[in-house]
Design a protein around this nucleic acid. Structure first.
Lengths: 209, 209, 209, 209
DNA sequence: CATGAATGAGGGTTCATTCAT
DNA sequence: GATGAATGAACCCTCATTCAT
């Protein structure tokens, strides 16, 4: 009875035209999210998105069951990039590297995964107002923590797995803060990147003491 | 065109009864913010607040020009506590302490400034949906950064002032992340506190290298 | 989680003004139901009702949680009249009458309970499109059947109670048809009344064979 | 201004494929009507019908100008069966039967005309929401009443024709009620059939007194 | 002052219908 | 012919804000 609110796309676009429409919707959403500049209302409306995308509301609803689903799609694309990077490092080639080098490269890659700082921040903000996004965020955090914890184990940490996961999770959330800093204060300056990497390294390396 | 929205209370409550009403409104707001559990979207409505406060909407508008102003007031009280602490430490007495002890005490005090974790987190969340709150948050961050940067200077950092301020700001935002970690993952476990203090210290102390 | 859709009024009107508003809403609803002439779309909209009542949609929602609730209220007033009549007959005074007289009077009273044929018919029609109204209708039917079955028992029918209830229910639904006849075909002509009473009597009296 | 809505099929399907498509549409509609279970609101949507029929909306509009027309077609097929039965009885062969036997057979045939109880009831329900269906229903009722009245005349009733027609019409509508009873209360139990036949007989036979 | 009734713009969503491919 | 993408009017409902009492 309690019909689960769908987030998945409603309809698989079959024709060329519709694939374009979906892309336009996602683009418009990204644009709007950015335009709020990390400072914004954090709530998009279907009409807004449709207007920006140059389509009608009806069209939006052909492909997405609700606003949240649109935002969800945009978000998932961002999160997927992170998982892809982790997949890449989860290989003989990388895991053979010396510990410090491995994490140095990994962390740098993750930090630079999404070049569009504004949109990541906007996502973190809006996610607060969409319950399903919150959940996805949390799931993503946990999955990521698990995988990085495994890397730490591989490199010889003797901490129990659960504790390792919590540590990574802590780094993960802490890093949200770094995003805010970047967006609000210092979108260009290089020093933040170094600070960030240094901090992440410092915290993570505790597990080898 | 862009009519500046008023945030200050409409009238200064002078009589006993009025001050009581204002206080009831603020209490209700705090209560509602907390009840969102740090996870919620937390758009408050004027009716909600009024009902919780046991007054009528009309009365609410006697004292506040709009919802944002109410939330703003609550927020300002929280932020003020931080400034008060900084005032306290900005004195001969404290500044005579040894460096490590000074920052140890300061950081601990700041961390414990607002005992009500839930409400701070709720505020961080809702602030995203109220532009004026965002601004206030930013102003607060900068003011605080300036003052702590001054402390770091006092204790001998040779970094340029601007860079010091950025460093503190970085710590400041990073700490937001720690709040989220606490709320989402680990409201009880003690280890987070140690990690947090260690991290903050690590980052800050860079300016003395 | 599955928040039961409310049908009860939202707010008890406290001031004179609001009681008027509620009355205006109900009047408008009745008017609209009738104006469809038993032939109509069978679906009212909130805007329609509000416009007809000369108020704003918002006001409607102050007193009713949704359109269905408004219609429900109108309906309940009609059904209540029937229950009131049954209450009246459930008394020493009436139950002492001879059988044929008792049912003769009862049936005539029930038939004439709601003088506004059109609105009863409209209700029967719209109820199809509002699940909660359907339920109420059914509840009403069963309650009524039970009560009249008890009367039949009192007058000596030896049929089992359940069967008696079914018989009355049958009469009840059959009579819906008579309403349609009246509304569609013959709003004035007296003969229908006699036919109706005769039919009802004929069917009911079977239980005394 | 009041542009008359077309109900007839847009094109006469001549080719094999087209007739098949039309048939699929009608089947889908019947299926959907039944699935509302006699209790449902039963506003069908064009997309629903098309999907169920396994065709595209566009195709549906090739053959029917709008949803109402589709339902209309389904309805007409049901009503036509009744007329066909009446045609059959309007013949020397049947009219030579004794009165009681004639009506006995006729009523039984009519009752069993449409074996699909659910769909008849669904139609009675949805017809309320389509003005043109209502009209058709009424036309059908009047036509049928005229014909049966003629039978009654043939068998010697001395009532004026108009009055006879009204009587049959009354029986006709009353019987709608019986359908509802069956659907809501007692889909299995045999007693209802006997009650129904008895009632119809009782009412009709009045015209021979 | 306090109350709560009234307002209506605006957001979410559906669906009949048209039309380019 | 068939397809399904696109449209937008229309419905439902909420909530900030005003104002008569």
């Amino acid at each position: 009875m309690l019909e689960e609110k769908r987030l998945s796309a409603r309809k698989k676009p079959k024709q060329q035209r519709s694939r374009q429409t979906v892309e336009r919707i996602l683009d418009a959403t990204r644009e709007l999210l950015k335009s709020t500049d990390g400072a914004g209302s954090a709530r998009l409306t279907t009409h807004q998105i449709a207007r920006t995308a140059g389509i009608s509301v009806g069209s939006l609803y052909q492909y997405f069951p609700n606003t949240e689903a649109v935002v969800f799609e945009v978000y998932r694309e961002i999160l997927d990039k992170v998982q892809t990077i982790l997949d890449e490092f989860d290989s003989m080639e990388y895991l053979a590297l010396p510990r410090d080098e491995f994490f140095e490269i990994l962390n740098r890659k993750l930090t630079e995964a999404e070049p569009d700082t504004e949109i990541v921040l906007a996502m973190l903000n809006v996610s607060k107002t969409y319950p399903m996004l919150q959940e996805e965020e949390r799931r993503h955090a946990e999955r990521t923590a698990k995988r990085i914890a495994a890397f730490l184990r591989h490199y010889g940490s003797t901490w129990p797995m659960k504790k390792l996961e919590r540590l990574v999770l802590y780094v993960f959330y802490m890093d949200h803060g770094a995003w805010m800093y970047r967006a609000h204060v210092d979108p260009e300056r290089k020093e933040i990147l170094d600070w960030e990497v240094a901090t992440v390294n410092f915290v993570m390396m505790q597990c080898f003491d």
